[in-house]
Design a protein around this nucleic acid. Sequence first.
DNA 1: ATGACTTATAGCATAAGA
Length: 260
Amino acid sequence: MRIATWNVNSITARLPRLLAWLESSGTDVLCIQETKCTLEQFPTDALREAGYESAVNATGRWNGVAVLSRVGLADVVTGLPGGPEYDGVQEPRAVSATCGGARVWSVYVPNGREVAHEHYAYKLRWLGALREAVAADAAGTLPFAVLGDYNIAPTDEDVWDPAVFEGATHVTPAERDALAALRGTGLSDVVPRPLKYDRPYSYWDYRQLAFPKNRGMRIDLVYGNAPFTAAVKDSYVDREERKGKGASDHAPVVVDLDVR
DNA sequence: ATGACTTATAGCATAAGA
């Protein structure tokens, strides 16, 4: 079974590339972030015609997540149970489902903006709620993984130049501690292999030729429990999808699982 | 070649991204 996670930066803008990539990659289950659409705008019909069921948590212009599956879609949970509010609302940043023998979460962790910003404190609270919400499944016997855009580079090796990120979000000890606490529930970082260069970056800024210069970050992560990681046959970043006109600024992270 | 940001919006500049 091929599972992937991809921040598409608007599913409306990305739909042609999304459909083409689903077909060319042979992905069975795709966790999507930043759909940037309402529930009504989500392309459920086009995806169904392509053979995928959709579980969607989307409310409008910002955020939005989904799980697509062509191997079954059951026990959908929309949102992060116990998750914090920002500006009085629970933003659409989580959706989970059981697909073909594995349970997956698609998460879009808050960005944080700046360390002094209220959004950063919200990010840490959100990660704390995520840890509590996944603990039982993380300790379970069913292959289970939390996939998505974590907006955190786990180590300095996961950014193209640590000096550039000094004092910035995505690399602070508190954010990395939150990741460690999440791993503490029984999850492990499934580190993909890069298809080029030495680091498996998954995000490159649109500006200043970041992609051709490989000035990237590894912030799209797959955290799997022991039954999940035991079934991993391969994992890679499909950087080809970052190329060309109409690309997202994130590339898909793909995991091949040996489950029936 | 991979190429100098992109997206959605009761818009025409702004907020957000990271």
